[in-house]
Design a protein around this nucleic acid. Structure first.
Lengths: 131, 131
DNA sequence: TCTTGACTTAGAGTGCACTTTAAGTGTTAT
DNA sequence: ATAACACTTAAAGTGCACTCTAAGTCAAGA
């Protein structure tokens, strides 16, 4: 699979795929005799994993560490697990924060629904909320 | 309340508070006779709201628009609500993506738990997953 | 054979959200 | 009165994660 095909398949630009490989969050991709990238299943798996982790806000640096550990082999299993657990916790924390914000947004939207369709200055004052 | 006090209270640097005011996601803060910021309850409310929205990943640009609409008064209620609804949807989308990543992380962590404490190459192969 | 288009690299540029710097003014404590 | 510190502004700098550019190579079709 060429870089253009992988790009289409995963919705990441060819630039981004080369960047991911260069920084090391995708291990070296096999090449054709001419030196052109030829993405195989393993490489595609890495792309998908990294797309997923990046979408969740996991930093490139953490992913670089994970891939480096992975490439060192089985002796790094415990370290890799610890890294994932740490990232999982950070992710859960961000999600909790976002949940609070979501609820706050919902509250404000509800308030706007009350205000629209017959709002008066008095009514707004009664609601006891501004912003 | 001075900028230093507000900074401590909300865990945002004085620089960030000034930046927020400059770009317009916090309306002009009242000043003392000497021109020094004197954060009142309304300003504090804005700080808290913006801290919350930024933590959820809402872009500065959207918040600038919201505050601008707010300052134009009651005629912008519908527009403000629409803006909030749009941001709410984007936030919910990001959270769904993150939930998927969280589940994927949990799956990998579970796998590492199986592998650690008696792993062999055969066992890893049987798990049918790499990375 | 020639052009088109996909690929390569190293390195520079971009956008976002701060963050720091420089130069200066005002306030508080001894 | 003077030091130390908090404040002001405009503008430059930073860090992250891409994103683009320039210069060049290579394979396939007219």
């Amino acid at each position: 699979m060429t870089i253009a095909e992988a790009s289409r398949k995963y919705g990441l630009s060819a630039d981004t795929l080369r960047y991911y490989e260069r920084v090391g969050i995708i291990p070296p991709v096999p090449r054709t005799a001419g030196g052109i990238r030829d993405y195989d299943e393993a490489s595609c798996g890495w792309i998908e994993l990294m797309k997923c982790m990046r979408a969740a806000g996991v930093q490139i640096e953490a992913l670089v560490k994970y891939v480096a550990l992975y490439q060192r082999g089985d002796e790094t299993l415990a370290d890799r697990k610890a890294l994932l657990v740490s990232q999982r916790e950070q992710l859960a924390g961000r999600m909790a924060e976002m949940q609070a914000s979501l609820e706050r947004l919902d509250g404000k939207i509800w308030l706007y629904e009350q205000l629209i369709g017959g709002e008066t200055a008095q009514q707004r004052a009664q609601e006891g909320q501004s912003q």
